[in-house]
Design a protein around this nucleic acid. Structure first.
Length: 410
RNA sequence: GCCGGGAUGGGGUAGCGGUGUAUCCUUGGGGACUGUGGAUCCCCGGACCCGGGUUCAAAUCCCGGUCCCGGCCCCA
């Protein structure tokens, strides 16, 4: 039997149904915030990602030569596609609030919370450089967390590239990139590596401490700091999840310009659940029109890990009805009954085997149905249906109209 | 791309050079049951990841690959 490809996943019903509910929760929250759904291609030209550091990025993309000789890749992220879509439509009324939930691919080694194919929700506001756009995007992210039942399990960590640049200037640090690198990897690297980076940057331990702990903001005056604090104040005004400044949040992407943020589980045992920030220059790099933007991406894998850890990975109870039949009259009657029930909006499954009644009811019970309707000559002749509650064992007979009311209300 | 640990029916496992048909549990299918339950009993199906090598003999030892779990790099 052929194996599935490394880093790819099969989703069986018992998991897929839960995933579907989670995705619906995310997208419904986007719509409630006034975001509109968009989608893009699954394959793009590698040129679209060329603004990132050259050849090195190629090893992390699922790229190949297509039959026409084009160098293409399965899309590794949404933002460049989004930028292209916005740049090529000058008639769009700004600001845009767009979301998408799609599959993305990266050719990397699979590990906890990371696969080669994954789903990612993206939500962005384009065409506003106001801090209120940042707030709206963050409120959406916080509301999604609440909607998933994770409101008190996670926190939002904020920083700002421009603020960090102010700090670098204030403290007279020359090796900016090395400092970014050090902060980004702060939790992961050993003291020895830290020391070597510290001496390379030429920063004093006291000053570094001010950055890492965030205490630096108490003595710094800067419009970028004011902006960040205003964002946080307004975010707290709306009130969804915890928020804090963490100057160690850098994010790897070159295109972020000011605000950057991540959502983490409270004890920071997992990877970031969501990440994003403000990217004001990508679209103008494509068509010259200044279109500032802010948004985030949230993958499915870490969310799933966290929901499982918190015991929230389970299917909400569903009302489901299975029709069992006792004889040929019942079989024929079942087509009429199932059609009426389905037309009234009730989800109905029915027996598609030659099994005897006992086996049918056993099947319905094992599959987790709440009710089994039983149809046979008796029901057909008397124009009734019998409903057996598979949890309590109670059984009633009634006419179809009353049964529809009962099934819809239970 | 690199490093560590794994892989035995659908799931979980025992066996770790030779011992009869590879163990046990579970799941799946059928029957006992011609209009009523996950019980019970009976029957059936189903596995040593792939390829080389060592050996009289390999599920077992060695090498390579694949996939899984985790970590590094990177993180969109």
């Amino acid at each position: 039997m052929p194996e599935k490809l490394r880093g790819f996943r099969d989703f069986y019903p018992e998991d897929q149904e839960i995933r579907r509910e989670i995705f619906e929760t995310m997208m419904e929250e986007c719509r409630r915030f006034g975001f509109r759904e968009v989608d893009g291609p699954s394959i793009e030209s590698v040129d679209l990602y060329a603004h990132k550091s050259g050849e090195e990025i190629m090893g992390q993309m699922f790229n190949f030569i297509d039959k026409g000789g084009r160098e293409v890749t399965l899309v590794p992220e949404f933002t460049p596609t989004l930028a292209r879509m916005v740049a090529s439509r000058k008639d769009l009324i700004k600001p845009l609030k767009w979301y998408t939930l799609a599959k993305f691919w990266r050719y990397e080694e699979p590990q906890s919370g990371r696969f080669r194919e994954f789903y990612q929700l993206n939500a962005d506001i384009l065409g506003s450089d106001s801090l209120h756009a940042d707030v709206e995007v963050l409120n959406l992210a916080g509301s999604i967390m609440k909607g998933l039942g994770l409101g008190n399990k996670v926190k939002l960590k904020m920083s700002s590239r421009t603020l960090l640049d102010d700090i670098i200037k204030y403290l007279n640090i020359e090796k900016k990139d090395s400092l970014y690198y050090l902060l980004d990897r702060w939790i992961k690297i050993s003291d020895k590596e830290k020391d070597s980076l510290i001496s390379e940057i030429g920063i004093s331990k006291e000053n570094l401490e001010l950055i890492v702990t965030g205490k630096i903001i108490e003595e710094l005056k800067s419009p970028n700091l004011d902006r960040l604090i205003k964002i946080m104040d307004e975010f707290n005004e709306y009130g969804t999840i915890k928020i804090e400044i963490d100057l160690k949040i850098v994010r790897g992407l070159a295109y972020y310009t000011s605000t950057v943020f991540e959502i983490w589980d409270l004890d920071e045992k997992m990877r970031a659940i969501m990440g994003g920030g403000r990217y004001d220059n990508i679209i103008s790099q494509m068509n010259g029109d200044y279109t500032p933007a802010v948004g985030f991406g949230m993958g499915d894998a870490v969310v799933e890990n966290l929901l499982k850890r918190e015991g929230l990975w389970y299917e909400k109870e569903k009302k489901r009805v299975f029709i069992s039949i006792a004889d040929d009259k019942g079989r024929k009657y079942s087509y009429y009954v199932s059609k009426k029930l389905r037309e009234s909006g009730i989800m109905v499954d029915l027996n598609v085997t030659e099994r005897n009644l006992g086996k049918q009811i056993e099947y319905a019970a094992k599959m987790g149905f709440k009710y089994s309707i039983i149809l046979g000559e008796r029901e057909f002749t008397n124009k009734i249906i019998s409903i057996r509650d598979l949890i309590t064992g109670e059984q009633f007979s009634m006419n179809l109209e009353d049964a529809i009311i009962k099934l819809k209300n239970s």
